[in-house]
Structures are given as structure tokens and as C-alpha cells.
Design a protein around this nucleic acid. Structure first.
Length: 669
DNA sequence: ACTACTGTGGATCGTGAATC
DNA sequence: GATTCACGATCCACAGTAGT
């Protein structure tokens, strides 16, 4: 399936020209002689994004396009005993399927009218990343599947895997040694340069198949669906279908699969038990983090011994101290373990560790290193938790709850703590500030006067101003204080960008105790916050809390009230507003933009001559339209190209407006 | 019981700054 | 000018704690 989407020459030229303009503007801006108004810059950047999908060749970060999953792609809950594993079966209906859980990368493939269309990773379960180009390089993944009696649009989920023997071959060839197949697959599939991918022999083992809106066209039994994937050219389905009447049969199947997993060329890290009936499965549905219609048995057999060298004390953004065991490195289950968390004082004391002691470790769920015991106990030598935070020397505060002692560093100016906070604020989930990772956060915490989020934006504004007024002197000063002048300059640019992030992200960035992105989303929606609401945000929040809202109980409520009542936090929001922070409204955004194609949800059928489907979609979406993949009630426009498929018929039936390629030309002109 | 949040592990890759 | 290496981002995973 080696077939890369190639841009036509015209698009290529346009892209190059836009990139040049962006680069020139960036350079001029930071050299203190801006050549372009901000809104014009934004417009060019957006046009570029719509053409190439991202602008990473301009900026620094490697970004894949985000894709929202049609159906959430959640994890499977693990069980560690056979009893717990069996326990769920009774809810699963008459038949259950028992199958190996492959240790790879979860992925969803989309097929339209039998042809591979796109692929996305699991991501956080709701938003994945578009890895279509990478999957096209994998020749073992069918490009065309048989389409007899199946829906126009078919989605197949499975595990991207690689054979251990192929990993060994690769390691035997090259100097570079790879530790295990899962991480190699993860790394390979993220490569931007596609040339290496096909040689890595990555393939997909399906574990689910569905069709949005037309699921009833597929078999009612999961087992039959998986057999269908075999016919389509995917690997043989290894699952066993069991009648629930006989619990021994389930255990037999479990042991059969466990035995198969041992030493298999494709690594499996457990056994999945799932409802065979799709309708039963839909009844059981989803929890927030896990599916309710399947569970996984994970054998915990990886265990080893090593020596404890020392204990380090780390700090989180909230000031919480976490002890970490530093271990004599030991290989265990395809990884070399040198650190393991000790969680808190209570956990640490219960183990009774001391310098030089022999400890038993395992990888919980075959992943997370965990110390399970000390071999040669000696209570006289047990390590005592420090009373001050070693890094800043401040006396620790202890919180005792339910017999668990938790230590906090109360020092507001603790540099390590500030570094953690900056990293959190800059993370992908919060303000998504490029160039603000671990190292930069530490550098800022130690070398600048930043304490809170407003200081960070003041810092950015100050440098931007200095660079405009006296670039030479400013760069000299930056050079003296920071390891990379360019990195700081890029950071300043990223900070500018972060000022208009969505409100939910900004609420999380304010670091109100117990409020993260999720609650932030609810709060932003209920208050229908706009760009100018930052200056008075604490009062608006207080009003909301006093009215009461779902998801906020007494504890969160009082924490929020305390935060609001602190004049420092009112000042914080006011200053942020003053520094130009204008969060984007979640609810109003699509209306306020007033774009040409707002409200249009379209589907394309057939081949278009003006560009690939992806390119056309990107251009239309940039004007406010939404691309759908199949004709449903949500669709209000069908764009018809050469050789239209069954979508045309369906759209006619539903009375959906139908246009040709001319319409697209006109709109984009 | 379920959910949100925080913190922890190892491994990979692309990018670009630092270094030779 | 070429090469090395640190950093940033992302993949996979689980545990503990507290709130609803």
C-alpha cells in the first residue's frame, strides 16, 4: 500500500511561498522590525495549516493532526486474579469471547467503499492522532478489503504490532539496539520521514469492528465480525468463543490463550474476555475510563531482585513530596529498571527500606516498576523521611489522612515546585506552550523571577518589548542567563499564542485547587465566558459556586471560595488580562467567527479533479465547514465528483442538497 | 462505585543547538 | 560542515488519594 498523497505543483508553490512569508515575518518580529500586522500573520498561518495540516516545518514541535474519535477508544480494565476475571462473565450475555491482548499500539482504520481512507491512534481515548500516511507504508495492512454486504464506511480497531523475530533481525543488523516491539512500533509509527516504516513489518491485529449509523449491517456476534476481518486480509483471529453455561470452559480458554502467549512471536500482555453479542455490549456501554463489556486478565509473573542505592525526593506542582527509590539497574521484561516510586512516607516505612538493602521488584501490569518487598529486613537501618525539602531547605508540612502521611513543601518560592508548575501550565493538556518542557521550566524557575502564571506572561511581554526596542542588548542579556537564546525567543512567541487558548484550558492554568481541564470545561460552558472575562473571572466563578453546580460538592466548593476570596488571585486574573490574555470562548466561537461556510456539514463522494479529498476538505474546513465521512441526518451537503459511490443514492433518498465540483471551485475562489 | 487528578515508570522519534 | 546529543513530545502503562 505504498502510495503517498502528492500535492500538485501549484499547491506546492503556494505552500512554499506561505512558509517563506511566515519565516520572514517571524524573523522581522523578533529582530524588532515587524513587517506584518498580527491578523495578517494569523491569516497566513491558518492558510498554511489548511494546506499542509500543520506548520511544524515553521515552528519547532512535531505535531500530528488531532482527530476526534467517533466512538471513544477507551482502555480495558485489568484483573489480576482468575476469580475477578471470571466474575464479570455473567453480565456478558450468552456467549463470551476469550482472546489474547496484544502488546502494541491501539489504532483505528477507516475504510470507505472498501478502500483504506485514514488511520488514527488512541490518544487520550477521545482525541487521537492522524497516522494515515504512516499506515499507508505498512504493506501488510490491507489497502482494499472485500465489500460484500458491508457498510460503505467501516471502522476496524486493532493493535499495531511487530514480530519479536523481526525486532531481533533488526538488532542483529544495526548498531542501534531496540528494547521491545511495543516501543519500537510506537516510535516507528510516529516517524515523519516515511522511508523507514515499510521495512519494520508492522501489521494490525483487529479486536473490534463497527460502522457508525450502519452497525446493523454487520454480524451481531463479535466472533463473526473478527472472522470477517480474516476474510478481509487481516491475520487469523485467535479468539475462542465460549458458551457461558460452562464456567470451566472459560477458564480452559483462559489457560489455552495464556499458554499460547508464552513465547509467542507476537508479544501479548494478557487475555481479554468480552461480550460476544454486540447488542449486549451496547447495553453495557462505557464508563469514563473503561469499557464495561470487556476485561483483561494480566498475569503478574515478572519479578526480580536488585539493590537499593538511595532515595530521592521529588516534588510535584502542588508541593507534594514523592520519594523515589534509586535502584541498581536490572533488566526486567524488556526494560532496564533503575527507579521506582515509593509514593509516600507511610508506603516507604511499611516496606522498611534502607541503603544497600535487597528489594523485590515487579512491573505492575508489566509496565510500572514497583517494589513489593525487602528481602533482608533490618528495622534499625530503615531510612527516615526528611523533615526539610532537600532542594530548598524548607521545613515540610505533614498531612495525615486515613493513616497515610503526605509531605508538602510550603515554600511559595521553591524553585523545583515552580518548575513543576510551569511545566504543567505549558503542557499539551493545559496551555500547550511550545518550548516549555522540563528543562526550560527549570531554567525559568531558577533564573527568572517567575512565581505564578501571570509572571510567566509578564516575562514574555517584557522580552518581546525589549527585543523590539533593543534587540542586540536583549539577546546579549538572554545569552548570559539562559542556555539557548533561540529557545527563549521561541518561547516568547509561543506565549503570545497561548493567550487565546480556550477558556477550559485557561481555567485549569489558574491552578485553582481541585480544578482541572474537565471541570474547567463545565465551568466555561455554564458561565459562557468570553475573551474579556479574565479581568473579573473570580467574581463570576464565585457567583456560580453560590448558585451551586453539578460536580462541585462541599470540598471543591470551599476550596474554590477560598481561592476566590484570596485577593492575590483576583490580582492574578487582573494582571493576566492586563498582559493581553484573551481566552477563546468555547460556545460562541463558531458564531463569532462568522465564516463563509459556518454550519455546513458535508460529505464528498467520487473523485475530485481539483485536489485530493484531504486537500479539499482542509480548504473547506478552514472556511468553517465540517467534513463528515458518511451520509447521515447530520449531513446537509453532498459534493459529487467523478464516479460517485452509494452515498449519492443515499443523499438523494434523504433529500440532502447535492452539488458538483463547480460549487467547490466557486467557494474557494 | 465511579470519577478526577496527580504522580510515576521506560522507550521511541524529530529537531535543532552545541560541539568537534 | 558534519556529527553528537539534549530536549520536547508522544506512545504505552498503573497506583494512590480524594471527591461526588
Amino acid at each position: 500500500m505504498v502510495e503517498r498523497g502528492n500535492m500538485d505543483q501549484q499547491t506546492k508553490n503556494l505552500t512554499e511561498s506561505l512558509k517563506k512569508q511566515i519565516k520572514a515575518a517571524q524573523r522581522a518580529y523578533y529582530d524588532g522590525n515587524p513587517i506584518m500586522a498580527d491578523d495578517k500573520y494569523d491569516a497566513i498561518e491558518q492558510q498554511l495549516v489548511s494546506l499542509v495540516g500543520d506548520t511544524d516545518s515553521v515552528g519547532t514541535s512535531v505535531m500530528f493532526a488531532k482527530v476526534e474519535h467517533k466512538v471513544p477508544m477507551l482502555s480495558i480494565e485489568n484483573e489480576y486474579s482468575e476469580e475477578d476475571f471470571l466474575h464479570h462473565a455473567s453480565e456478558y450475555g450468552e456467549f463470551v469471547d476469550v482472546e489474547p491482548k496484544r502488546d502494541g499500539i491501539s489504532c483505528e482504520l477507516v475504510y470507505e467503499n472498501g478502500f483504506f481512507q485514514s488511520a488514527e491512534t488512541r490518544g487520550d481515548g477521545h482525541f487521537g492522532e492522524d497516522i494515515t500516511a504512516q499506515i499507508k507504508e505498512c504493506s501488510a495492512i490491507p489497502y482494499k478489503i472485500s465489500t460484500k454486504n458491508i457498510p460503505d464506511e467501516l471502522r476496524i480497531r486493532g493493535e499495531l504490532v511487530m514480530r519479536n523475530s523481526d525486532l531481533e533481525k533488526l538488532n542483529a543488523q544495526g548498531e542501534k539496539q531496540f528494547a521491545n516491539t511495543r516501543n519500537l512500533v510506537a516510535g516507528t509509527i510516529k516517524q515523519k520521514n516515511l522511508s523507514n516504516i515499510s521495512s519494520r513489518n508492522i501489521f494490525l491485529i483487529p479486536w473490534d469492528m463497527y460502522a457508525v449509523g450502519e452497525d446493523n449491517l454487520l454480524p451481531e456476534s463479535n466472533f463473526d465480525r473478527m472472522k470477517l476481518t480474516e476474510e478481509m486480509g487481516f491475520p487469523r483471529y485467535e479468539g475462542i468463543k465460549v458458551h457461558l453455561k460452562n464456567p470451566n470452559a472459560i477458564l480452559d480458554a483462559l489457560h489455552t490463550i495464556l499458554a499460547q502467549n508464552e513465547g509467542n512471536d507476537i508479544t501479548s500482555d494478557g487475555v481479554v474476555l468480552k461480550a460476544d453479542s454486540i447488542s449486549r455490549r451496547n447495553e453495557l456501554g462505557f464508563a469514563t475510563k473503561y469499557t464495561r463489556f470487556q476485561h483483561c486478565f494480566k498475569p503478574q509473573h515478572l519479578e526480580s531482585e536488585t539493590t537499593l542505592i538511595d532515595v530521592e525526593y521529588g516534588i510535584g506542582r502542588t508541593g507534594k513530596i514523592t520519594p523515589v527509590a534509586i535502584l541498581e539497574p536490572v533488566a526486567l521484561g524488556g526494560a532496564v529498571i533503575s527507579r521506582a516510586t515509593l509514593c509516600n512516607e507511610t508506603y516507604m516505612n511499611a516496606l522498611g527500606i534502607y541503603t544497600g538493602c535487597k528489594v523485590q521488584i515487579l512491573r505492575s501490569g508489566n509496565t510500572i516498576p514497583q517494589i513489593v518487598g525487602v528481602v533482608n529486613k533490618d528495622s534499625n537501618r530503615a531510612i527516615k523521611f526528611p523533615t526539610v525539602f532537600p532542594s530548598c531547605g524548607t521545613e515540610l508540612r505533614i498531612e495525615q489522612k486515613d493513616q497515610v502521611a503526605q509531605h508538602f513543601c510550603p515554600n511559595e518560592f521553591c524553585s523545583d515546585k515552580i518548575a513543576q508548575r510551569l511545566e504543567y501550565i505549558g503542557s499539551r493538556k493545559i496551555l500547550e506552550i511550545d518550548n516549555l518542557g522540563v528543562e526550560t521550566a527549570n531554567e525559568l524557575a531558577y533564573n527568572s523571577k517567575i512565581v505564578k502564571v501571570d509572571d510567566l506572561f509578564q516575562f514574555g511581554n517584557q522580552i518581546a518589548y525589549d527585543l523590539k526596542t533593543n534587540p542586540v542588548k536583549t539577546k546579549q542579556e538572554l545569552k548570559e542567563n539562559y542556555r539557548s537564546v533561540k529557545n527563549i525567543i521561541k518561547l516568547v512567541y509561543s506565549l503570545e499564542d497561548a493567550k487565546t487558548r480556550d477558556w477550559d484550558r485557561w481555567i485549569a492554568a489558574l491552578e485553582i485547587p481541585m480544578i482541572g481541564v474537565d471541570l474547567g470545561k463545565d465551568i466555561a460552558k455554564i458561565l459562557s465566558l468570553g475573551p474579556d472575562d479574565m479581568k473579573d473571572f473570580p467574581n463570576k466563578l464565585l457567583d456560580l459556586i453560590q448558585q451551586g453546580m453539578d460536580g462541585i460538592g462541599p470540598e471543591k466548593s470551599s476550596a474554590i471560595v477560598e481561592w476566590v476570596k484570596n485577593p492575590e488571585n483576583k490580582g492574578l486574573c487582573f494582571m493576566l488580562y492586563g498582559y493581553g490574555v484573551r481566552p477563546t470562548s468555547l460556545v460562541k466561537r463558531s458564531n463569532t467567527m462568522g465564516q463563509k461556510l459556518d454550519g455546513i456539514s458535508y460529505v464528498i463522494t467520487g473523485t475530485l479533479s481539483i485536489g485530493t479529498r484531504k486537500e479539499v476538505e482542509a480548504k473547506l474546513n478552514a472556511l468553517g465547514a465540517t467534513a463528515l465521512s458518511s451520509v447521515t441526518n447530520a449531513c446537509n451537503l453532498l459534493i459529487v465528483g467523478e464516479d460517485p459511490g452509494s452515498k449519492l443514492e443515499k443523499a438523494e433518498k434523504k433529500g440532502i442538497k447535492i452539488v458538483g465540483e463547480d460549487w467547490v471551485r466557486e467557494v474557494l475562489a
